[in-house]
Design a protein around this nucleic acid. Structure first.
Lengths: 252, 252
DNA sequence: GTCGCCGATTAACGCAGGTTAGACGTGCAC
DNA sequence: GTGCACGTCTAACCTGCGTTAATCGGCGAC
């Protein structure tokens, strides 16, 4: 048995319970599925692509990202992960981790056996519904990245990413007056946004000059969220959080 | 009761059964979940974003695409759909269709009640596993698009898309000696690849000049798939089809 | 301390791809 | 037939962003 107080499990529960309503009993049962809590140093690999996906790995604190490397050495970051997020959803299907997951800061992760989760969701079908809803949010964010990469220019892309991170981090209580911790380097940002690090630098400076964003040493402050969202063509509903409380079609 | 012979359901079964092994009984039961077959004209809307997702809509013949429109009018095509593909996976979670789905050619679709499907998958859990596996393939293809948009140049993007379509269409028997039907306009291709239609034209001409691709009136021929794949940095395993037969972690 | 590395920043230059604007062909409505 | 809509293709011009390379500052190892 692990000490559940070492790391708050609040973000995890807030994330899933924010998508699907759960009873106290269900929340407690979910908590007890957690079988291990691990810590990873910043810049450590959390999951390796292709590894067996028999465990569900959840970020409890810190930030991480998923990425894929191309044959020519270029790297695409495909998602940033915040507390409450599930590192990889392939346990639902193929049994093999889909992408590398890498710690951006020091990270605590919880692990549960995929099998136990599936077994528990026979008793509490709401577990699987919550998992599928979380997966759908993940997909919606990914689709928004695709739209950014295809249709937004550098300034809009950067603005959009910052709006996304602000919203997601605020949802788990990690934003205070527009300020949050986000220790991605300019190279990381470039690999996420499909830009060179030089152009990331230019872009950040322009956002700074416009008094929309301040960013230094991994601390980001958004001074005018409304204006930033307008610039980014950011649509709050597009990340798929908006339909909380509705049960969806899969209700048993 | 509908006439199941009007349109072959083979692509649908081939798609799901290609991901997860199914018995004759299971295939038959799945077939009988289909409650309606509809036809859509080319350039008709098949699904509208935000509509209730209480039915599972499957492409039986023809081609379609998903897209999202930005506030500034720009459009991003986020996926092409081939026979056997499911138009939208949101019935698994939110109960609302995630994106517009549009017919590229004349299209036949089958519809099943999401509720019936869920009920049937209690008796045949393999149904839900197949659905989650199909969803995972969909996600893997989407991630590959993200990588294209972020890290590949115009020539590589176009080549990659053509390799992807060839592979997916061949899987459902729609490629003959490197030739397949793909009636996307150059504007469509631009909206999928994040390029202007003018540059799509330049790019196609270069592929033609390199004797890799012939494309006219919606008929595509790939003359040297191996070379095209090399150019595109195409990785066959990245689309997520490779792990057929393995049951995955969710096995009950 | 100082060495070395990493990340931020700046400058100079170049090019891939965007934009605008036509011309041309084809197929369809009438 | 004619006119129109739509898709392909071309040309001229331009710019957003990449590339290369160098400087600077901070910070951890020793």
């Amino acid at each position: 048995m692990i000490d559940r107080n070492l790391v708050s499990i609040r973000p995890f529960l807030a994330n899933l319970a924010g998508l699907v309503r759960m009873s106290e009993e269900e929340l407690a049962s979910l908590t007890h599925l957690i079988k291990a809590l691990n810590h990873h140093q910043a810049h450590a690999t959390i999951l390796e692509e292709g590894a067996p996906a028999d465990r569900i790995v959840v970020i409890m604190s810190g930030l991480a990202y998923r990425f894929t490397r191309l044959a020519n050495g270029r790297r695409q970051i495909t998602a940033f992960l915040v507390p409450g997020d599930i590192c990889d959803y392939r346990f639902l299907s193929s049994g093999h981790v889909g992408q590398h997951v890498f710690a951006l800061s020091q990270v605590a992760v919880a692990r549960m056996q995929a099998e136990s989760f599936v077994a528990a969701s026979e008793r509490f079908p709401v577990f699987m519904r919550a998992m599928l809803a979380a997966n759908a949010v993940d997909e919606a964010i990914g689709r928004e990245w695709m739209i950014s990469l295809g249709q937004r220019n550098a300034l809009q892309r950067m603005a959009h990413l910052l709006c996304e991170m602000e919203l997601r981090l605020r949802r788990v209580g990690l934003v205070e007056k527009g300020t949050f911790h986000f220790p991605a380097t300019q190279t990381d940002l470039g690999d996420a946004l499909g830009l060179s690090s030089v152009h990331v630098n230019r872009t950040l400076q322009e956002l700074r000059r416009m008094h929309l964003v301040a960013m230094s040493k991994g601390i980001v402050t958004l001074n005018d969220t409304a204006a930033l969202r307008r610039l980014a063509l950011f649509d709050v509903t597009s990340l798929g959080y908006e339909r909380n409380g509705r049960a969806g079609a899969v209700t048993h």
